[in-house]
Computed example of a mutant assay.
Amino acid sequence: MDRLTIIKVGGKVVEDTQQLNLLLDQFNRFSGNKILVHGGGNTATEVAGKLGIETELVDGRRITSKSMLDVVTMVYGGLVNKKIVAGLQARGCNAIGLTGADLNLISAIKRPAGEIDYGFVGDVNDVNSRELRLMLNENVVPVVAPLTHDGKGSLLNTNADTIAAELAIELSGHYSTFLFYCFDKPGVLLDPDDDSKIIYELQAEQFNDYKQKGVISTGMLPKLDNGFRAKRNGVKEVLITNTENLSSGRGTRLV
């Protein structure tokens, strides 16, 4: 099967001009089929603050009120997405910016309120791989914002790590799929304040142990939960790394 590279880039990278330019340079060098999925992170928080809208996170996941949904739609689907697309076009990479609503790419259901009410947050229930494959076959590079839709006219905020994993799983039936989570650290760390303490290979049992002990927490949890799920469902390789090491393959490999 042909190779497909899916890179999910975190909000801290897209907010730093130098890091974003490096990421786009590296991404542009990957040959063959590729998809870029991005978050938005602090930009949405900053815009919400200016509008007097409070931001609330639980284990790295955003609580999305109706007002916050409007903010993330503007920031993720507009500002961040089109900035990345423009940067790729400047590098000769023919990209198209998409949300899950475009071409019915990713549909989701609103997460039911339980112990935590996440608000207008969607859990993915279908990926339209046909449309993505048609674009990839024409050498078009999808740049996907972390927004889905419920098929009833409502957009839903959806974790970008989850979207990347769902795309990788769905497309692994058609491609040899490699999933990279690219953020501001060189990998999963035993000590979040010491970038030299990288876990180069991480097994699911180790992850659960580290999670219970609090060694791995907050925003890293969605990456690893989704990364291991992708590995269990046909994705050939999952790597967690930073921009500098993206092309070298250095970082935390899930095994």
Rank of each mutant, 00 (worst) to 15 (best):
A230L: 01
G92N: 04
Q26V: 01
V80A: 08
S67D: 15
M135W: 03
A101K: 11
I199M: 13
I116S: 04
K211F: 03
R130V: 05
A108N: 08
D184L: 06
G114C: 00
P222A: 05
A164R: 00
G187F: 05
R130A: 02
V14I: 14
K110A: 07
Y76P: 03
G11R: 05
V121I: 07
V215I: 15
G227C: 10
K236T: 05
D16R: 03
A168C: 09
A160Q: 10
R250K: 14
Y181R: 07
F183D: 09
Y200S: 13
A90Q: 13
D123E: 15
N94I: 03
Y200G: 00
V85Q: 13
T241C: 05
R133Y: 00
D102T: 05
I35R: 09
E54V: 13
E170M: 01
K110C: 11
Y181C: 02
Y175T: 01
D161V: 03
S31A: 06
G153D: 10
G173Q: 05
N128D: 11
G10N: 08
M74T: 12
L24D: 02
I106W: 11
D194C: 14
N245M: 08
M220A: 13
D184F: 02
S217G: 06
K34G: 04
P222K: 01
L4Y: 08
T162W: 01
S154Q: 14
L132I: 13
L179P: 08
G78S: 11
R62H: 12
V13E: 01
H174I: 07
V72W: 04
L254R: 11
F228R: 10
N139Q: 11
I6Y: 11
Y200T: 15
K82M: 14
M135E: 00
G32A: 10
Y175W: 07
L132G: 02
A95F: 02
L103R: 07
D2E: 14
T218M: 12
K185M: 04
A101R: 13
K82G: 07
E170W: 00
F178R: 09
I163K: 06
T252W: 07
L224K: 02
S65A: 12
T177A: 11
G100M: 13
R250Q: 11
T158G: 00
L190A: 10
V75Q: 11
V72G: 02
Y118D: 01
N42H: 15
E205H: 13
S65M: 11
N139F: 06
G87T: 03
V14T: 04
K110T: 13
R253V: 05
